[in-house]
Design a protein around this nucleic acid. Structure first.
Lengths: 249, 249
DNA sequence: GGAATAGTGTCTGTTAGACAGTATTCG
DNA sequence: CGAATACTGTCTAACAGACACTATTCC
């Protein structure tokens, strides 16, 4: 809400202040593996641990704006590039002790990046690295409750692939059906039947649209594949369900 | 995140403080119509306007705990009852000017209540009323950005009915298939084929389980219907899609 | 009996899944 | 040539949607 029971001339400083931050689970596909962007913490608490990128909301920023700003800072990508990326609010984490220093409420986002340039640029980006998803254990548990946030983000992205055209957000502007299938296979961790996947995608109006021009070789082997662009549709009807059949409870 | 770039001994009071609140979109079914719980504001801003119930997070409360506390306060329901209700985090609204008084970040929740006792009890509950959903216009626009939050909540609940067993949260502990169908029809605003709906529900393992005992008359007419309880499943596979085919983009 | 609701059975067009087979490219 | 990938076609079992029909109750 917004304070119905707040006293009339209530004092903004009456309560212990809350800090509000954004945390980002940024996914990309590199070498047929799902990768996530992590930063190494330089200071306590959790100094030396890996964490999701993120930061404070500035005084006149919404969480969405702050998330895009942080994304640009951490990846070194241009503002224009970041403006076109898929960014989706996940949920808000507000357990009182999630940060030992003070009360921090964090709005988590999931972002999808098509290609994966190694983070570069000044400042924050210097500490950011792409890490294969699922191997966080190799880097020790993430700082704060970021393991939980990351797991939630992965589950959400997997579920969104079923009902939306989100998969194209992982692909470059022009892509082959095989590359699109790779997105599903990599995120879901399953193998899909190639002919059936192709038929399903092409039968869904607005999912992809053919691109004129010469086909492209995939990995140097096999027949060159036709190219497609993302279509106008955002939702998938009927959905493209995961083989096993797990959904978001 | 949680401050990676915060200066080492940073001062929690350095920034203008953010207030953090919860807003609740509480739905119920009364007389075959979807109703939402609204409160009438007694003070500026938006004095006299209707608003979603909600309130500030207490210093050591998570958003979920605060939401259940507010729900109990506004409805007059017991803590035990509220503990069993379906409560789902929607998203967080953080536009800088959503509250003219100060910076307020609000975590919105959607809640589903099976029966609809008129709100009673002291304090806040006195101002709360059930209002038919879709007629907010008759009461003027809601305060703050609550029209938007309410619309988002409705869309989310509708989408969740497709993929989860959520519909049983609108029903009393024992219900008929017809009552369950009413939930879908009312929230979606469509008519469903009775035999097909029945077949689909009974064919989904874990959605409902039969209850021994005598059937119950529905509305005083027709054949008494068998009773069911909510099953163990939380997800619906395959999903029960809306006839038209709109999903969550 | 008429109206209303619960419940059963049946038909049909669509679709998902499996899989055989052809086309094109690289080494 | 073999291996790998793209693409086409076909078969089958399952399912959604439509709808006819019976059963049980209140008026």
């Amino acid at each position: 809400m917004t304070p119905p029971q707040a006293p009339e001339g209530y004092d903004p400083y009456a309560f212990e202040p809350f800090a509000v931050t954004v945390d980002l689970a940024v996914f990309t596909l590199r070498e047929e593996r799902l990768h996530v962007l992590l930063v190494e913490r330089g200071q306590e608490p959790y100094a030396g641990a890996w964490a999701l990128p993120g930061g404070f909301l500035l005084p006149r920023e919404s969480a969405e704006v702050a998330a895009r700003r942080e994304l640009a800072e951490e990846t070194g990508l241009s503002g224009d590039t970041v403006a076109g990326l898929h960014l989706e609010q996940l949920r808000t984490y507000s357990e009182p002790d999630r940060d030992p220093r003070m009360r921090v409420v964090s709005v988590a986002f999931a972002a999808l990046v098509p290609d994966a340039p190694e983070p570069r640029g000044g400042g924050d980006a210097a500490r950011a690295r792409w890490r294969p998803y699922g191997t966080q254990g190799a880097y020790g548990p993430l700082a704060f409750d970021h393991d939980r946030i990351l797991a939630d983000a992965h589950e959400r992205v997997g579920a969104r692939l079923e009902y939306t055209c989100l998969a194209t957000a992982f692909c470059p502007p022009e892509f082959t059906i095989g590359e699109l299938r790779q997105v599903y296979e990599t995120v879901w961790g399953v193998e899909l039947d190639r002919p059936n996947f192709r038929r399903k995608v092409l039968a869904t109006p607005g999912f992809v649209q053919a691109v004129e021009g010469p086909p492209r070789l995939t990995g140097g082997r096999g027949k060159p594949a036709a190219l497609y662009r993302a279509g106008e549709a955002t939702a998938l009807h009927p959905p493209l369900l995961r083989p096993e059949g797990r959904s978001t409870p």
